[in-house]
Nucleic acid binder design. Structure first.
Length: 535
RNA sequence: GCCCCCGUAGCUCAGUGGAUAGAGCAUUGGUUUCCUAAACCAUGUGCGGCAGUUCGAUUCUGCCCGGGGGCACCA
């Protein structure tokens, strides 16, 4: 990539100027303002102090040296501001982007190897199998699925996993709630499940089944259907019950004891998680002899390392307090701290009819994922979830999403993709063929709209890298919007098929359109959003 | 009290240790003999506050203020 080439040249130049140890802060970046060149480096500013030199002077020497040993594509250099060295490049660097996009195709454009084949296990959604998934779960579904796609594009092998909490008191209460509704009674206590769906499900329940068993199966089928409608699939649905039956809990307990981390106090069995930075020690087995939720969960997490070198949990903000203890337990079991990562996502607030809809299974007013997808479709839903950082709380207003049907950002992007295909269809009708790229004269692409589009396309790999390292799929969402914007601008100002377009320019533009198609397809695929050929 | 996230334009949100901080929506006005006008263009007195680190802070650190979420022998 051009960026790496320029950075290497900067390092060489610094070396020639007697600066061998280049600080990490030296970067080559795109100035926000094009007047400051296509690329820029802060090298002189960062190195000046340690080298005991004046930044402007050092910058000038740097620029002079780089001017004499010009990296490819560099037209001119200048020193500016407090000591930036700005590179102005010939458009050929952008034509190389087009050529690379076409050569790589959808399969490889923007692909980078950050992971080296490392296996990443990503757990997300993990909702209790005691009811449908609500629209709050949708955020984790969209996020987790997109994150896995990004990992896969960056040389990791992702494994999407979700945990089924299918044993314990809440399952018992769920069964009792169904049984009660079956005979037309209220569930026995306020701690039971009061939602409307319990009444509906109880009506479907046969007489001769165990309500808890039937209920869990029914809930799982319902959840799978909702996720399928959102185009989210898991590699593994992990059952807590199965994990316990496989002995994960007991072997974890044994090893924690061997490590000397377990102690008895007040009739309960504790884990000394404070040894690894937790606020307080945690109970594994209560004084009544029952295991807490934590113990089987430790066993389960330990077992996930069979399916991943790096284990990631995507959890809601209400689980934040849980992170330190699980991290401590896994370190006790011999895992490196950095091999277990928890991504805490902030909450989703749902609005309908200008009122907040509480996401509780007990109120009966919840908005299910399937409601949302039925009303706006999977693409709008996923795009909406991935529009902002997972670190910010999000408000999803179904009425706004529906009302925005035509102004919705997802359509803006999909429309760009559809227009590209429309050009292909029109070209076919008019008998215009795209000759081999090698025969195209890309130097005819000089319109600012064309160059801007190429600049956007050039940043895909950088954005994918950032999205991966920061676990931030929304960076892709923004990139795709930017590319769509650049494309719409191009299409508005730069006719492709019109009769008066010079044939050489027409060929170059057809290839530019093709490169854009590839870029948009890659971006949308990383988001799990459909790239339609017509709208 | 302690821990985590957030505070950027009228609204919803991007973004950045740098040189003039962006988008969508909303407002107002414009663009169509031309590949889908689901488009394009124009229109904006904005980084909560105070210190610190730095050549340079909206970005990092501390404190304060404001909003959200947690602090069980629940799951």
């Amino acid at each position: 990539m051009i960026k790496d080439d320029l950075l290497a040249a900067v390092h060489d130049a610094l070396g020639a100027l007697g600066i061998a140890d280049v600080p990490n802060g030296v970067v080559v970046e795109r100035p926000s303002n094009l007047e400051h060149g296509d690329w820029s480096t802060n090298a002189a500013l960062v190195c000046a102090k340690a080298a005991g030199r004046n930044p402007r002077e050092l910058g000038q020497q740097l620029a002079d040296h780089l001017g004499e040993h010009r990296p490819a594509h560099v037209d001119s250099l200048e020193i500016a501001g407090p000591g930036f060295v700005n590179f102005r490049l010939a458009n050929t660097w952008l034509y190389d982007v087009l050529i690379a996009a076409v050569a790589d195709g959808e399969a490889d454009f923007g692909r980078i190897d950050l992971g080296g084949g490392k296996r990443v296990n990503v757990e997300f959604v993990s909702a209790n199998p005691t009811g449908p998934l609500h629209a709050g779960h949708g955020r984790w579904a969209a996020y987790g699925d997109s994150l896995c796609r990004i990992f896969n594009r960056c040389g990791y092998q992702s494994h999407a996993e979700t945990y089924i909490n299918d044993r314990g008191v809440q399952i018992q209460r769920f069964g009792e709630s169904l049984a009660a509704r079956k005979v037309g009674e209220e569930p026995p206590t306020d701690d039971h499940y009061m939602g409307q769906y319990i009444i509906e499900w109880a009506a479907e329940m046969p007489d001769d089944v165990d309500p808890a068993v039937w209920g869990v199966e029914h809930a799982l089928a319902d959840q799978k259907a909702a996720l399928a409608a959102m185009h989210v699939e898991f590699d593994t649905w992990s059952s807590e019950k199965a994990s316990v039956e496989a002995g994960h809990m007991e072997s974890a307990m044994e090893r924690l004891k061997e490590g000397g981390y377990v102690f008895e106090e007040g009739g309960a069995t504790w884990l000394r998680t404070t040894d690894f930075g937790d606020d307080k020690d945690r109970v594994l087995i209560k004084s009544d002899g029952e295991a807490t939720y934590m113990l089987p969960d430790i066993g389960y997490h330990e077992s996930k390392f069979e399916r991943g070198d790096l284990v990631i949990d995507v959890l809601g903000a209400d689980h934040h307090g849980y992170v330190a203890r699980m991290s401590a337990a896994l370190q006790m079991l011999g895992h490196a701290k950095e091999d277990y990562e928890v991504i805490i996502g902030q909450n989703v607030k749902l609005m309908r009819d200008e009122k907040e809809v509480r996401l509780s299974k007990r109120t009966g007013t919840m908005i299910e994922i399937s409601d949302l997808v039925d009303e706006v479709g999977p693409d709008v839903a996923r795009f909406a979830y991935l529009l902002q950082s997972i670190d910010t709380s999000q408000t999803i207003d179904i009425d706004v999403l529906k009302a925005q049907a035509s102004e919705n950002p997802v359509f803006y992007v999909q429309y760009a993709h559809a227009r590209i295909h429309s050009i292909g269809r029109q070209a076919d009708e008019r008998g215009i063929e795209r000759a081999p790229l090698a025969d195209a004269d890309l130097s005819t692409l000089v319109h600012e709209r064309e160059l801007e589009l190429l600049r956007q396309l050039s940043s895909l790999a950088e954005l994918i890298e950032i999205a991966c390292n920061d676990r931030a799929p929304h960076r892709i969402t923004n990139w795709v919007r930017d590319v769509a914007g650049a494309y719409h601008g191009f299409q508005h100002d730069c006719p492709v098929l019109r009769d008066d377009v010079d044939p050489a320019l027409q060929q170059a533009r057809l290839w530019l359109v093709e490169a854009t198609r590839i870029g948009l397809s890659v971006g949308l695929d990383l988001l799990g959003v459909d790239a339609p050929k017509e709208m």
